[in-house]
Write a protein that binds this DNA or RNA. Structure first.
Lengths: 216, 216
DNA sequence: ACCTGAACACCGTTCAAGT
DNA sequence: ACCTGAACACCGTTCAAGT
């Protein structure tokens, strides 16, 4: 599993194969099948494995759920950025391994402390989760592309800005460029956007809770 | 392109190959390469093509942004559910084709009508987008699995409920089961969750706007 | 302009066999 | 218990050649 995760991190999911894993382990392709049923099985295990990298806050009943949501979201995002192949697999498998299960249990108990009525908890949870997943995914893929092209991300961005200036019809690029605004680096913009989005989600949850309990 | 999209819809991305496409078209594998550079190129075009299926509201300056956000989100979700392979590709490519570009332009002009300060627009946009993408993705994948297994989704759900009852340690499933609550069908719960999440996002955006303009 | 055939360097996986 | 070899049915893609 260690070599598998290492290879996935370094070369990406597309370049990973059973035969290459076997070669890396100095062994014949078929010997891998003694430890694992098939490729899907192997990847599913690798996926659950890195789920354990996301730090989950201790479940004290008097902790601030807002801060804990921010904490877990940051951890999950970091995990996705460290292992961009994970976001590709998360949708494919059921994700009911031990790490994934533990994670979702903690998330639910945090969400219960928002004061939302029970039937809204799943909706709120998925709002936060889907956002974090999406954000971490595009961030990871972008960095992956930069690494594959062998350039620093701000250089690549600079290059794209020029292309956008030279081809004014190309709005897709213009969006990207505009997004940076006057900030000094892409990383800075990303932090700002991420923080804003979480604030926005938290404010939304608070508003929905207040709407559900008009008397409080 | 029509046959490509048809094959992807029916058999999924995993079963799609250049050779099968050629066979379906009654032609030799290599003739496909006369129209398209390579497989990535083909998929990228297919992806932008179905982007045109998402209805975009007319950009009238006095329209209610809340309703328009809900409208576009519903359309985007429907597109992802109709073409589950799309969510797998959206992260892979740059998505700067004509349809994708038009879409993001409209989204930005809707978001500008929220009254949010300019530097918050990208963050708000990505919050809504990432949620919708994630929601549509898991919904599409779930239905894909049901179809592959040849069962109706509520039957499959019933089966999982039993497994969850028989194996109490399996919390991943318990989550799923609990989520349905007392509703009559999974589809109903999904609609409720989706509506809640959008309300939550919209409430969050309003709260952030009010926080940024304390005087209004 | 449009299509073919043969070939290359890959895949995941089965199955019978070795130690 | 752990690994191998040969084989099967696939891939995407190049390149030279046909009409």
């Amino acid at each position: 599993m260690r070599t598998t995760i290492g290879m996935l991190d370094e070369q990406g999911l597309a370049r990973f194969s059973m035969r290459r894993l076997a070669a890396e382990l100095g062994v014949t392709p078929m010997s891998v099948y003694w430890y694992v049923d098939n490729k899907d099985d192997l990847l599913e295990i690798a996926l659950d494995e890195i789920g354990g990298e996301v730090p989950v806050p201790s479940d004290s009943p008097d902790a601030d759920w807002r801060q804990q949501v921010r904490q877990v979201a940051a951890g999950y995002r970091a995990m996705l950025v460290a292992h961009p192949w994970a976001s590709r697999l998360i949708g494919e498998y059921m994700n009911v391994g031990p790490k994934a299960t533990a994670f979702s249990t903690v998330m639910r108990s945090i969400m219960r402390r928002t004061g939302l009525p029970d039937e809204m908890i799943p909706g709120a949870l998925s709002t936060v989760y889907q956002f974090t997943y999406g954000f971490g995914t595009v961030e990871g893929r972008w960095q992956e592309r930069c690494r594959a092209a062998g350039v620093r991300e701000d250089d690549l961005f600079e290059e794209m800005s020029e292309t956008a200036r030279d081809h004014p019809g190309f709005h897709g690029l213009a969006d990207l460029v505009e997004r940076r605004g006057r900030a000094s680096s892409l990383a800075e913009v990303r932090e700002r956007d991420f923080a804003f989005s979480l604030d926005c989600l938290i404010a939304g949850i608070e508003a929905m809770r207040d709407r559900a309990h008009p008397g409080v």
